[in-house]
Amino acid sequence: MSRENVLVSAQWAEENLETPGVVLVEVDEDTSAYDNGHIPGAVKIDWKTELQDPVRRDFVDRAGFEKLLSAKGIGNDDTVVLYGGNNNWFAAYAYWYFKLYGHDKVQLLDGGRKKWELDGRPLSADAVSREETTYTAREQDTAIRAFRDEVVQAIDAKNLVDVRSPDEFSGKLLAPAHLPQEQAQRAGHIPTAINVPWSKAANEDGTFRSDEELRELYKEAGIDESKATIAYCRIGERSSHTWFALHELLGHSDVKNYDGSWTEYGSLVGVPVEVGAH
């Protein structure tokens, strides 16, 4: 795996807006951003209403993913370039999701919507329609998805990387600071987890730091490369960003994203919780 295979620059994307077989997809929680202006030709995927099961807390299943991608006009052979707001959190989450269902040719737009806007590149509010396809997904690749029991087993055994902000890690805050703080679950972190905020992997403009900087970051933080790694955050999207950095950019072989993350773990009865900074 190398950076060129998994990341494209804003410049490259602008030059390939019309390239057949390249599909830009904006992934946001708040789709009004897309509706007010998106990269010309890009289709949108709504993180909540289209990627999540409407009733249970889980993803849409394989058939649901096939239906979604078919309706969006995305084919199995298309190169999908994902971007979004929030420093690509939800785009990285969708990237992980595409990999989970076996889509090979998927890339992230480095810097996402922020870099695109800060560069002053064109946005369009025109409706985009693509011809429907017949998309075929594979079974979920659980080699990259962690569930709660294996997270509890991983305490003191695997690298647990908590990618939330230091205040969420210590238990001072329960959610990122742009959200209200009243929540049901306990505050704190999983014992033996190290805190490497996702933001340390990104530059101010939303692009990823260099491979060299990332290697140094995770080495300094104490990730043992001889062990498997599980990344988590609050709901699993910021940890997708770190999963991308560790697994896709640095090529660590065994890295899972725990999408249940703190909203699940912090609500479990009987599991150990640690508070305070290390």
């Binding site: 807390r57 959190w89 959610a175 990122p176 959200l179 709901i235 910021r238």
Partner: peptide, 9 residues
């Protein structure tokens, strides 16, 4: 569930 997306300012 509410995500981490930016609410309307």
């Amino acid at each position: 569930m509410s995500g981490c997306g930016a609410p309307e300012q």
